[in-house]
Each structure stands twice: as structure tokens, then as C-alpha cells.
Amino acid sequence: MGKKRKKKNVIPGFGVSLGITITMLGLVVMIPLCSLVLFSAELSPTEFLKTVTGARVLSSYRVSFETAFFAAVIDAVAGLVIAWVLVRYEFPGREIMNGLIELPFALPTAVAGIALTHLTTANGWVGSIFHRFGIEIAYTRIGITVALVFIGIPFVVRSVQPVLEKVDGQYEEAANILGANPRQTFCRIILPEISPALIAGFTMSFARGLGEYGSVVFIAGNTPFETEIAPLMIMSKLQEFDYSSATAIALVMLFAAFIILFINALIQSRASRIVSGID
């Protein structure tokens, strides 16, 4: 099908549009990226290692990874349930619920941050309830996780929802007729179909959570070794004009993000190979 088109582009305007695309891409993405690479090349390896293995930096990585991971797990579960409800059931308020999902995209993170903080302090609307049971949310890692759950929820829902909509009802019916109970049907029929999308959503909310700053700084309390996240470490190095340390910490974070996305890409391509039947 593509053979004929390979020879020549019939559609006009290739030069202009490629030119504009590359120019803007160059200005906005490529030049800054090159300067990051150039600057990193100048860092001395010993200093780099010393910065990224400093106790405070290491603990900030741990806080970031732990909170982002737990938040992504909670998002995956909650997101799956919400997507399921939105696709499978008809109930009053469904349209409103569907429209609400993108709220964390639309609401500025700083606003979400201060609102969540005030809600979850010991005398906040929600925090006071938990406070009675001795659980503090704001200014602890639980607080950071709450903020990251808020940020990540649309990624899972919007990733799973379209796939769930396309799941063919025939297979479920067949499973039913063959005597499967609802749990078996879900685990054997539906989950395998939607798991690539669920993993993609999980990955995106995990990766986003690792880098999130705006909503977290307010709720975190930013105590060193306790609730200090990696992006905040970069920020404080920048405020001291210590660009080499900031860059070193940032490179490790970038590397981690790329590994996560790469693993996801592997899973996705394997899944699409299985679906298309090409080995």
C-alpha cells in the first residue's frame, strides 16, 4: 500500500512545514538540550559522584521514588475503577464525573498544592479526622503521596478508558456461557486486554510524580532527609547558583525517567506484537 507513496510526496508544502518544524524544535528543545549536554561534559566525574551520592541527595531520591511509586499504584487502582465505572455503567452524574477527570490538568499545581495542604493539616477539614487517629497528612510523606495521587489520576483514567470501551463484549459473554464467574471473566478476559494501557497510565503518572514540584512543595514541609523531594534539591542548588550540583542531580533524575519510559515502551511494543500476531 505504501509502495507508491515512497517514491515522491505529491502533497505540496513539505519544505516550508519541515523548515518551520525543525526551526522551532531547534530553538525550543534542541539548543537547550545541547547546552545541558555541553555543560554536563564539563562536570568532573569525582565531583559528580560526590554530589549525587551525598546523603541528603540520596534521601531526596528515595523520598521522590517512594512517594511517586505509591501514588502511581493508588492511581492505577483508583483510575481503573473510575474508568470501569465511566465505561460500563449508566448513572446520573456520569457526564459530570467524566468531565471532572481532567481537573488536575486544568487546575494550576500551586493552587492544588495550597488547597490540599490546608485541607490536610491537623485542623483542616480532612486532616482533623485523620489527626484523631494519630495520622498526620500535611508535611509528611503521606501528604506528598496525596498531592501526587491528585496529579496522576487523569493519566490512568484517560489511558484505560478508550481501551476498555473497545473491549469486545462477545468474549465476556462467551466466558459467561462457559461458566466463568465474574472475577474469572475480569482477570482472564478483561485484564489482559487493558493491562498495556493500565501499565502505560501507571508509568506516566509515576514519571510525572517523580518530576512534580508545584503541588508538592507546599504540602511536603521540606524537612531535609524526611520530606525533601529531588526536584526541590535541584531548585535549592539553583538558588545558590550552584549549577554543577543542580545539573548532576537533574541528570540522575532524567536518566531514571528515561529508564521508566523505556521499560514502558518495551512492554507496549511486546503487547502490540501479541495483538497483531507478528512475532
Binding site: V29, L36, F39, G211, P231, Y243, A250, L261
Partner: peptide, 25 residues
């Protein structure tokens, strides 16, 4: 490259512009 900005932390996005136009660039 187009989708790259989505995966970069906003703080790191700020950092690379500081490195591009700042004094050491």
C-alpha cells in the same frame, strides 16, 4: 524530540534554560 518536554520535570526544564542563557553558557 517533540514529545520530550512531557517527560522532563518542570524544574529540569527551567534548569536547561538557565544553562542555555546563563553566565556559564
Amino acid at each position: 524530540l517533540m514529545d520530550l518536554p512531557l517527560t522532563v520535570s518542570p524544574i529540569i526544564a527551567g534548569l536547561i534554560y538557565v544553562l542555555t542563557f546563563g553566565r556559564q553558557s
